[in-house]
Design a protein around this nucleic acid. Sequence first.
RNA 1: GGAGAGUUGGCAGAGUGGUCGAUUGCGGCGGUCUUGAAAACCGUUGACCCGCAAGGGUCCGGGGGUUCGAAUCCCUCAUUCUCCGCCA
Length: 423
Amino acid sequence: MLQLQKIRENRDQIIERLAVKNFKATALVDEIIELDNTRRNSQKELDDILALSNQLAKEIGNHYAKGEQGKAELAKQESLKLKAAAKAIEPLLMETVELLNAKLIELPNLPHTSVPNGKTPEDNEIIYEEGVMPRLPENAVPHWDLASTYKIVDFELGNKVTGAGFPFYRGKGARLQRALINFFLDEAIEAGYTEYQPPLLVNAASGYGTGQLPDKEGQMYFAPEDNLYLIPTAEVPLTNIYRDVIVKENDFPIKNVAYSNCFRREAGSYGKDVRGLNRLHQFDKVEIVQIQHPDKSYQTLEEMKEHVAGLLRKLELPFRILRLCGGDMSFTSALTYDFEVFSAAQNRWLEVSSVSNFEDFQANRMKLRFKDKEGKTRLAHTLNGSALALPRVVAALLENNQSAEGIKIPDALTNYTGFKFID
RNA sequence: GGAGAGUUGGCAGAGUGGUCGAUUGCGGCGGUCUUGAAAACCGUUGACCCGCAAGGGUCCGGGGGUUCGAAUCCCUCAUUCUCCGCCA
């Protein structure tokens, strides 16, 4: 959520910036400013009445103490009038505040100045590319075929037991998953992150804090009996640790990492995008989160980008980095880098990571703040990134490393898997 | 799931209808003393809203109510602890 004060002060720039996200903000921004004016006026009016009322209440106390019943009764009558006046304003004020908040959360985060204009993924800017394109054998096949040949991922079994998008991993497939999770976690710990095991279900306040609610409600699984949401990413619990927290400035940077299952309804997805491991309802991901001082968050974003690049390098996967265009960015992000690996048998680039700086957008929703050197309370910046999401990494590993001997496991992983080939 | 007791500032812990945003202790910060430090002593120490400021308002788990006035009384939800039941 954008800061109200900034909206008031920079109306025109905000409208202009949001146009990069193809968001027409003029009407909404003006409405917000108008509502805020109404709110301030009502608030002032109410505060004045309450001030008088408080004063009267004290006087009544004094009258009673002195035994002046008559004066007390008179003051009481006066006080009742004030109370009635306050009662008249209160619902109006509450209504205004609610409406104002509802409008405020409709505004997306401002894109960073480096964000390219654009509407679709085609407009994303490729800023980096690395790795050797694998040369595949003639009879190379996509990962879903390899999965059944080597009996390492069973999609049909998942269909039977749960439904589409919930595969079983089996044998070396399951061990490869476990190896990747441990590898990613160890790399993050090595880079100074603290490991967490978060809850997989969160309450509405947490979903709201990181921005999944209210607008992406339909993407999350929901347990209505208990009013809990299954997390679409560990970002939600991991960032919400700091909801309503005022951290110390010298705690920065706060670096946390968590492995979790992620659950996404993926309503509206179809076709080749959802084939095999390309898009699942339940998948595994290691997520890194940082809470940082506003002056240093972009430096941190670069550091996180390098961390993710390092992982892909060690896995020997060809990858590229995109700077997302305004139209493809998330609602909450100010700048996002997507990482894509090349999955040779499908001949496609697959997104395996998304690294974002949210600046103070999530922090404002969450009231995540810090005290600066002058003792002023300010909003912190939040960042996160996948490091990494497993299924598409597995897809690329299987496809790119296939040969007549089986599937070769990259050297960085063999200590974790305990085997060098899937055969 | 049942019964009972709690939830107060960074922490501990008073306060059971009026001058309480809240006694006190610890911790934090500043100072005196000291070559330096410790100890001791003195001072200071929450968040939010409106306002240039002076000042005003809100917040004692969340929400609602009673009252001229609520941390204090009532209702409700959440949560913690103890006991019982069930259970990986």
